[in-house]
Amino acid sequence: MGKLTQFVNCKILRNHSIFKEDLWVRDGKIVNPEKVFFDEKVKADFVIDCKGSIIAPGFIELQINGGLGYDFSFLENTEKGVSVVSKFLLSHGVTSFCPTVVTSPKEIYHSVLPKITRRKGGKNGATIIGVHVEGPFISKAKKGAHPPEHIVTFEKGISDLEDVYGSLDNVQIITLAPELDNSSKVIQELRKRNIIVSVGHSIADLANGEVAVNNGASLITHLFNAMLPFHHRDPGLVGLLASDKIPEGRTIFFGIISDGIHTQAAALRIAYRVHAEGLILVTDAISAMGLNEGQHKIGQMDIEIRDRKAYIAGTNTLCGSIASMIQCIKIFLQATGCTPEYALEAASLHPAKLLGIEKVKGTLDFGADADFVFLNENFDVVSTWIAGECVYNVEA
């Protein structure tokens, strides 16, 4: 067996509660101290004083387009960009993420997607779970920052996706508009391949959304943004949060951008109070995250950062966030009045449940991967750990 590490003088988040208890780690996994005490009768090889920190599961980011000047949808420096951003995310408490590629021409997908491979995290960066491909099978009417000339349909079904993307091997999530013809067959086929289908950038009504969910869709991309606004006669995709046509035992998850810009505080509160179980915090951060104001690029489009907001250059159209995950957690906590436990789990346990990895990620349960983050009383990131190894320390 490997070396046993005991984390002391800490409070841990487990089973929806934060309480004072030591955390034990061995071979990159969280272990049950009772077995150590009573069965093995051994002491820790290393004892780490956490100095009163909260230990929470590492954050899981499902939608991030880039950062530090690198864009995952840009052909040049793809591998370097993913590596740089992956390491940068450690300072935000993110231990796993889905690099997101937005609507692009076919040749971009064919070049970029093979280069963004799944990999385990460590000192070189957060774990890459798989790519989130956002588009190009979306609605031009709700394109947001996506270039309309590259938006397409799937008239031939799944073969169109294979033609456009080149390969689905590295893809974990696909955002598509469920009102498009042949969407039902496409969703069913993607689920057979264990690819998560998210509905978004869409003019779908509630009925379209319910059909998509019954065919296997399980996520809504950045709720309230790039979809029909809520209407009392037809609430659109927003209505999925309270639909009575969701299959029994299924949870509809939804990403929400709590950066203080994309989703107003009252909207955050509504989503939280209506369907807390399915809420997942995402940043939707773009290439300008971590950079100063000025001209930058997202996908094939020029963007502009001004007044701490990101716009399509020369317009007032928002095109992505520049907030970190820990900032989104803090904003959400303040806006909704939820418990700290809930805000942290919305960035860890909830995305893990969507991905079906809640036994090993997004939790501090015994047997889970020892991916976690130390937070001080102000919820600032003190250090980040992957497989029981410190991969970021604010004091370093």
Rank of each mutant, 00 (worst) to 15 (best):
F224E: 01
D27R: 08
I280H: 00
T127D: 09
E61R: 03
Q327M: 13
V101C: 05
V133I: 12
E395V: 13
V82Y: 05
L291V: 14
I329P: 00
E107P: 03
Y70G: 08
A56F: 03
S324E: 13
L333H: 14
A313F: 12
L364P: 02
D71T: 03
H201G: 05
S73Y: 05
V282K: 01
E345L: 13
Q264L: 12
I174E: 06
G260V: 03
C338A: 12
P178W: 04
A145D: 08
V394G: 13
E248D: 14
V171Y: 02
K142M: 10
G299L: 03
S104F: 00
H201I: 04
N9D: 10
A323W: 00
E76G: 08
I252F: 00
I129M: 04
R250N: 15
K297L: 11
G69P: 01
L349Y: 10
Q188K: 15
N292P: 11
S104L: 11
E155V: 09
P57Q: 09
L291C: 15
G294N: 12
I60S: 00
F154D: 07
D160F: 04
G294P: 06
N77P: 01
G290L: 06
A265D: 14
G216F: 05
D181T: 12
N170M: 07
F379L: 15
Y392A: 09
A347D: 01
P340Y: 05
